[in-house]
Design a protein around this nucleic acid. Structure first.
Ligand SMILES: [Zn+2]
Length: 681
DNA sequence: CGAGTTTGACCCGCGC
DNA sequence: GCGCGGGTCAAACTCG
């Protein structure tokens, strides 16, 4: 089981997400019920809002999410001082096993502490002690820590498995029974009892799923008890039999889903390709016009930027989903719903325990009666549910082109708008990004500039946080950079630069700045991204100090929103060959054959380290150690003159790994014992 | 006390 | 309209 507690919007209060395996959904929802009642009874100004329960059949997971709402909202800066937050934490801790998980997706780093204790006096939750003795719950309904722990283990396994399959998230069947939430007025969307959301997969021609749609529930797991309000926990044998009956059916459905999904993927790829080509053409045109405007020029040929990285796209297709509203499902209370439907693909889950439980939560909100009758508590909701005219969906218009196919930001190509175009081009240059991959143990490669950190986030799909820096060498310098470790290889540090400095740079910072700006301009001009290209184009820069790039893999991505060049300073023999546009330069000396361990001193070596350490440098026209400027200019000259030398320089960089050097970018080498939270199951 | 870091909140865009 | 993710702001904090 996984618990998530986080805060995104202050006004909305902390959010709670509880994941559990479906096999434990009974215990799961019972505990939720307890939790809910506990909270709602604790304080008149505290309530749970936005309650939702979702069952993911493919992964056999049940999810409950809600917000802990408090009026007036508490406004802390530090979460640990927010009584609402800390109380929620301890409460969750009590009701569920102490398995917490950081909210990876949201903003900032949301850490959860395990041993957090809340002073009962300051807790916002002060439930009546009689709550547990209310007879509402049998003893079997009490939280079962042992079961939760086992569940947590299962979930971990499952999660790992999912992760390994490339983050592919396929929600085959997702049931959602909200709608009967406290808001009684906005019942419209909650109307359609059985909401099929799989039409975007072309699977189901949703034809106003009728309320009484009798659908084959593939998973009626151990839920009917609650639904039938008999509440006889124990006879799950018959359920198992039923489940087995439907396994075959389910398999067929899945096969078909797979097939359709594959087709969709093909179409998607094709579309992406077309899109990329279009984008490349557009970029080329922009660059042409720009060049025509300002007479400066470098060699340029048509680009083939149609190389979008779309391997990541493979998986996130949702195969099929079903959303079912809780209210009417429970309301339906039919017996016919368990039979196979007209088309066997549809499944219904009205028998799920979540329905009854969540509804019970709602019900006791309005009338505090504790009976288990299925009488709808809320007359308004009942009326809405009965309203027959609601189950048709007023969806987005049909025939709408694929989003992104006609990006709204595409400039019009009127010749009369050259100025506009130029401005747009400038904007794009500012938006262009150059990312550098280098192996580094330090938390940041020192590139000679002064940076101030202004943010840190957990990026999705990467356990390592991403840090945001801004150049502080001059006030108002627009240059920013992001630093993040690669998810694949933690030893690789990915630094992404954006913008150009508006101030003179120290020689130590020249290398990186020139390289990145050259790469960016080249990317935007549409010329062929190659190491030679960067080197040659460096001649147009005020100072042609460039980082050695010849052995690097320079990849280019024109995919929106940011065009990005990637300079790969790592030597990785088994890199995927499909994503690189050009082969490494043939002039690479064998020196590069050995692995590069640390390139965190990319410009330290320009300024301070003895480049003469390396024999190759000595044998080239490198002078003995010099003042910084001289060394740099010499290096510059050499680099621009001789690609071999650049390669040697790279080797030199690698050879000084162990040397400490003064770090002029700040002392942020501390291992940061207070790391932004890891996912701790 | 000032500069730099931490981190929760806010904003915005996008997709559903 | 809402949820979610990326990017940024800025209050609170830390450090010298
Ligand atoms: Zn700057």
């Amino acid at each position: 089981m996984i618990l998530k507690l986080g805060q995104r919007d202050l006004s909305l209060g902390p959010f709670v997400q509880v994941f559990a395996p479906v096999c434990l959904s009974l215990n799961f929802f019972k505990t939720l019920f307890l939790f809910h009642n506990f909270v709602e009874d604790s304080s008149p100004n505290v309530s749970l809002t936005k309650k939702r329960a979702i069952i993911n059949l493919r992964h056999s997971k049940a999810l409950f999410k809600c917000r802990v709402h408090c009026t007036p909202p508490l406004l802390p800066k530090r979460l640990e001082r927010n009584p609402l937050y800390t109380s929620s934490l301890s409460l969750l801790h009590h009701f569920f096993a102490p398995h917490f998980c950081v909210d990876e997706g949201g903003t900032g780093a949301r850490r959860l502490s395990f041993d957090h204790t809340v002073d009962a006096a300051t807790s916002v939750f002060n439930p009546k002690p009689s709550l547990f003795g209310l007879g509402l719950f049998r003893s079997s309904c009490k939280p079962d820590p042992a079961a939760w722990k086992q569940a947590a283990f299962d979930m971990e396994q499952d999660d790992q498995h999912v992760e390994s399959s490339d983050g592919m998230k396929r929600v085959v069947n997702e049931m959602d029974f909200f709608g009967s939430g406290g808001r009684s007025s906005s019942k419209e969307e909650a109307k359609a009892d059985v909401k099929m959301e799989s039409e975007h997969q072309g699977l189901v021609q949703e034809d106003d799923a009728p309320a009484e749609a009798d659908v084959n529930t593939g998973l009626n797991l151990l839920t009917t008890n609650i639904v039938s309000k008999k509440s006889v926990p124990g006879d799950r044998t018959s359920q198992n039999l039923k489940d087995k009956e439907r396994v075959n059916q389910l398999a067929d459905i899945r096969a078909e889903l797979e097939r359709i999904n594959a087709e969709n993927q093909r179409l998607k790829v094709t579309l992406n390709q077309v899109n990329s080509n279009y984008y490349a053409l557009q970029m080329h045109l922009v660059s042409l016009m720009q060049r025509q405007q300002n007479r400066r020029d470098e060699s340029s040929e048509a680009s083939e930027m149609n190389r979008t990285t779309e391997e990541k796209r493979h998986g996130e297709a949702i195969v099929a989903r079903q959303f079912m509203d809780l209210g009417q499902a429970a309301k339906a209370e039919k017996d016919e719903l368990s039979e196979s439907s007209s088309d066997g693909r549809v499944q219904e889950f009205s028998g799920s325990p979540g329905n009854a439980i969540v509804e019970s939560m709602e019900r006791r909100q309005t009338n505090s009666s504790r009976n288990y009758e299925t009488v709808p508590s809320d007359p308004i909701s009942r009326k809405d549910l009965m309203d027959p005219g609601r189950n048709q969906r007023e969806d987005t218009p049909e025939g709408r082109p694929h989003p992104g196919w006609l990006p709204s930001k595409v400039p019009k190509f009127n010749t009369s708008r050259d100025v506009e175009l130029a401005q747009e081009t400038m904007a794009m240059i500012r938006k262009a990004r150059v990312s550098v991959r280098a192996r580094s143990e330090a938390s940041m490669i020192s590139d000679g500039c002064q940076w101030r950190k202004y943010g840190q986030k957990m990026a999705k799909g990467n356990p390592c946080p991403r840090a945001y820096y801004r150049c502080t060498m001059a006030t108002g310098c627009p240059v920013r950079k992001q630093v993040q470790r690669s998810a694949d290889d933690r030893t690789i540090l990915i630094t992404t630069y954006e913008g150009n400095h508006n101030h003179p740079l120290p020689p130590a910072a020249m290398a990186m700045a020139s390289t990145t700006s050259a790469a960016a301009s080249m990317l935007l001009s549409g010329s062929m991204p190659s190491a030679d290209g960067i080197m040659n184009s460096s001649t147009i820069l005020p100072k042609g100090i460039m980082l050695p790039c010849s052995p690097n893999l320079v990849t280019l991505s024109a995919s929106a929103p940011f065009p990005t060049v990637t300079l790969d300073l790592t030597y990785n023999p088994n890199q995927r060959p499909t994503s690189q546009l050009l082969a490494p330069s043939p002039n690479i000396p064998h020196l590069l054959g050995h692995p590069i361990y640390n390139q965190s001193k990319l410009l330290g070596l320009f300024s301070s380290q003895g480049i003469e350490h390396h024999p190759h440098l000595a044998q080239n026209q490198m002078q003995p150690p010099h003042p910084v400027a001289d060394t740099v200019s010499a290096a510059t000259a050499a680099i621009t003159a001789d690609p071999n030398f650049t390669a040697a320089l790279v080797a030199a960089i690698t050879s000084i790994i162990g040397n400490p050097h003064r770090d002029n970018s700040g002392n942020n080498n501390s291992p940061t014992s207070r790391n932004t939270g890891d996912n701790n199951t």
